[in-house]
Design a protein around this nucleic acid. Structure first.
Lengths: 340, 340
DNA sequence: TTGTAGGCGTTATCAT
DNA sequence: ATGATAACGCCTACAA
């Protein structure tokens, strides 16, 4: 036999189901003694309200879908965790689906609609995939998260990478940098081109010139190769290095250390992208993506849905945080040096 | 107004809801022409069956809960993906919850029970947490997955790490190793202590001695630091290195290469844990955890629930696969060298 | 083969 | 303040 129902609780407490419901939900006043009896009966029977029945009655499941491409990275893992945690606070359940990258997203959207989710958070691997998903969502509210977003179609949460690179440029300049070298960025890809442009723009403000090193990969070995070339050819005036991400920076740092190049003494090193969202300590100054805040914002946008017609899609832009490590000179250090 | 219901479809097709239901589910024969009309009406209205109503009626949600500790690692990320993908094949939805490590798991178990999940997959951060969760689950089937499992309480899926470390020891020994150094493992944590014990046991069989290097972190930088110490202090007879995971190994390899230490010529390097389940090529010999299989097994155990009394808890043990890369000497290479 | 009707568990409405 | 009752949408005995 199944779990206790509201009717069981009501019977045991000697009241009607209506009263029992009101006593438990607090939706209306109930006489104190009856209320007490209901609560007692509920505990005695181990009553668990049936969310399915409640959802049917209310036409609201308190459930949102999260739809992601397969082949997870730490990125997506951090996003899942952020959304999941934010939803817990609202007592909303998360239904997760992974789509094959080449697979049509709308199959999954349909599955989520069948489950009557109250909303969908979507991180598509391309703008087109996102558009298809949005089209299939019908009147279910959708929030797009991540890099590939059609900002006009639905509410969305994105990263303000330009702002972030600005922070980094300013920090390096405040530490005395004048000539920066970008390592591990591939001008052949649109995303990296955009980052370089942002760095350049920010650099102009901060009087920080930028040169782009030849691309040899954006991973550990890429950093090592770049470092070796750099050591062999000399720094030719560069006093700071901006690495594409923490891995490139780690490889670079290893080579520099081996060759007795002092960091940050001879050259400052920073990274544009923190790859270890969970890490407590960092060896390299880096930009950390604000995953928890992104999750919170996505959930907030879903919980406060805009009305479809009379409003424009909302777009939240969050800036990564600058995490300062001893691979760069903080302003304090600079002033201390200037004093000496 | 909401989505089309079965009644709408039936009305449009000029049949009763019962006939419409049967036509769509195929649970009973329906006259061909009526069937066609129902399908037509269904498509015309964009009918999506309401899984909530269906679940209420059937007392079955086609939903399972996945309960994990927060602070995701790639480990958990791979597990999520594996379970999620396996469930899709069964048309079962995944409800995901992240628990704070110190937080009581049973709060989350209650939430899942309220949602009437058909089963729960659990990866607890400790045996105690798992036990509490199992106790709170009542008659909802539970499968425990991962390292901390009470094998008597419920069905479970585990990793045969001892077997795996044995494979690795044998492989290194077959490549000529006699003295191994463990890097990136922290004897202060129970999990790593256990791995070290397993390595030691397996080593005795294979005549491979084991020393444990000082712990400096189990990530990329930890590997780099360990490598630098090793190069500075000399290898003192060690002919092979067992790294805690691929990241540590990558850092190590980078430093070794920079210092012209030949791998596997001077020293073999292997990793205990593949962190990039998707990768096609590996630079380091490693143990790949069978995530997809673990997900499949967990789902299978849930779908074929044992009867509570008259049976014993099932335990599936899966062994990681040894993925051989050029960082170790394969037996073939050894025999070739022995010939020369 | 088809239709009618009851019930899954909850909550809102309408009386009292 | 409380109780009876009607939905929410689907499925399936049971009847025809």
């Amino acid at each position: 036999m199944g779990a206790a129902t509201l009717a069981d609780v009501a019977a045991r407490a000697g009241v009607s189901v209506a009263t029992a419901s009101r006593a438990l939900s607090g939706s209306r006043p109930v006489a104190p003694d009856k209320r007490r009896r209901v609560l007692e009966a509920s505990r005695a029977l181990g009553y668990q309200p049936n969310a399915v029945a409640s959802a049917l009655r209310a036409s609201r499941t308190r459930t949102v879908g999260l739809l992601l491409p397969r082949y997870s990275t730490l990125f997506l893992s951090a996003l899942i965790e952020a959304v999941s945690t934010s939803l817990d606070d609202h007592d909303v359940a998360l239904v997760l689906r992974h789509a094959d990258p080449d697979e049509a997203f709308d199959t999954h959207v349909r599955a989520l609609r069948a489950r009557r989710v109250d909303g969908i958070v979507l991180s598509a691997p391309s703008i087109e995939a996102g558009r298809a998903a949005v089209a299939g969502a019908g009147d279910v509210p959708v929030v797009q998260v991540g890099r590939f977003v059609d900002p006009d179609a639905t509410d969305s949460v994105g990263l303000d990478e330009d702002r972030a690179t600005g922070l980094l440029s300013d920090h390096l300049a405040a530490g005395g940098a004048r000539h920066a070298l970008a390592v591990g960025l591939d001008p052949a890809t649109p995303a990296d081109r955009r980052r370089l442009a942002a760095l350049r723009t920010a650099g102009e403000q901060a009087r920080l010139s930028l040169r782009v090193a030849a691309f040899d990969g954006s991973d550990l070995n890429g950093g090592i190769r770049a470092g070796e070339r750099l050591v062999a050819q000399g720094f030719s005036g560069h006093d700071s290095i901006v690495a594409a991400n923490d891995e490139v920076a780690a490889g670079l740092m290893a080579v520099l250390r081996l060759n007795a190049v002092r960091v940050p003494g001879d050259v400052q090193v920073a990274s544009l992208l923190d790859l270890t969202p969970g890490a407590r300590t960092h060896a390299v100054t880096t930009l950390r993506h604000p995953w928890p805040a992104m999750g919170r914002e996505a959930v907030r946008l879903l919980q406060q849905p805009r009305r479809p017609e009379d409003d424009v899609a909302r777009r939240v832009q969050l800036a990564p945080a600058l995490v300062i490590a001893p691979s760069t000179r903080s302003p304090e250090t600079v002033s201390a040096q200037e004093k000496s």
